[in-house]
Simulated assay, not measured.
Amino acid sequence: MFTGIIEELGTVAAIESKDDSAVITIDAKGLVDDLGLGGSLAVNGVCLTSVRDEASSPPGAFTAEVSGPFTAEVMGETLRLTGLGALRTGDRVNLERCTPASGRFDGHVVQGHVDGCGELVSRDDHAEWSTLRIGIPNHLAPYTASKGSIALNGVSLTLTAVSEPSEASAWVEVGLIPATLSHTTLGDISPGDPVNIEVDVLAKYTARLLSFRDESTTFSSTDSTRETDSTQQGADHD
């Protein structure tokens, strides 16, 4: 689990494309020095598993110029459904280690399971902050709400505005302070750039629960009590 608080900006050091997958190595600047084989790292909001093994990494990935390399195998589905497929060598990426049980919880619950890929529609840069409007897949719109939480490229943010249900294309807006603009890749993106979207997991679970609000499938506490009473009556009778 993650919280959407970016710890470091990494750089894509090498990419080895295969038939329907890729091996990506990232210069993580020491963030993963103690991250062994099988450890997790969120890269632009996508939870990836370390395969830190020089033998399985792209040529030139482990060099003196690459500090704290993180190498992950990324399957084709992830490349297609997230912005990772558009990464190129030299691109900067947002990095976050998984949250320790004793750590501070400064953002919101982020799983690193991207729900879809949107794109930056527009940005309005003010004197001290910026407003970004991101187009999102329409099926994700019900999980967004003004003042609610969202993860954009792995960054935990508060939504300042959302599209109305009647609009043909769904979108969300966020306001970014200078610290967020300078410490994450959101300060560099331009209209048309892909953005990984992870909506609030609490909204997803709520929607899932509500989808079962059919009388035939809803668990009834009354039925449970009746069964307990019946069992107790049988015991008393004996």
Score class of each variant (00 low, 15 high):
2 F>V: 03
4 G>V: 00
5 I>Y: 09
12 V>N: 05
17 S>H: 07
23 V>Y: 05
24 I>M: 10
27 D>L: 09
32 V>H: 00
33 D>G: 15
35 L>F: 07
39 G>N: 08
42 A>H: 09
42 A>L: 06
43 V>E: 06
45 G>A: 04
47 C>P: 01
49 T>M: 13
50 S>D: 10
50 S>P: 03
51 V>C: 14
52 R>N: 15
53 D>V: 03
57 S>G: 10
57 S>F: 03
58 P>C: 14
66 V>K: 06
66 V>M: 09
70 F>S: 14
71 T>K: 06
72 A>S: 15
78 T>E: 09
87 L>D: 02
90 G>I: 01
92 R>S: 14
93 V>N: 02
98 C>E: 13
100 P>K: 03
100 P>A: 14
102 S>Y: 09
107 G>Q: 01
108 H>D: 02
113 H>G: 11
120 L>N: 04
129 W>K: 10
130 S>G: 01
131 T>W: 12
136 I>G: 09
137 P>E: 13
140 L>G: 06
143 Y>S: 15
146 S>V: 04
148 G>T: 07
152 L>C: 13
155 V>H: 07
155 V>R: 04
157 L>R: 03
159 L>I: 07
160 T>L: 00
168 A>V: 08
171 W>K: 10
172 V>E: 05
173 E>D: 14
181 L>S: 08
186 L>A: 06
189 I>A: 00
190 S>E: 13
191 P>E: 11
192 G>M: 04
196 N>Q: 05
203 A>L: 03
205 Y>L: 09
209 L>F: 04
218 T>H: 05
219 F>A: 07
220 S>E: 13
225 T>Q: 11
226 R>I: 15
226 R>F: 12
229 D>W: 14
230 S>N: 05
231 T>F: 11
238 D>L: 15
238 D>W: 13
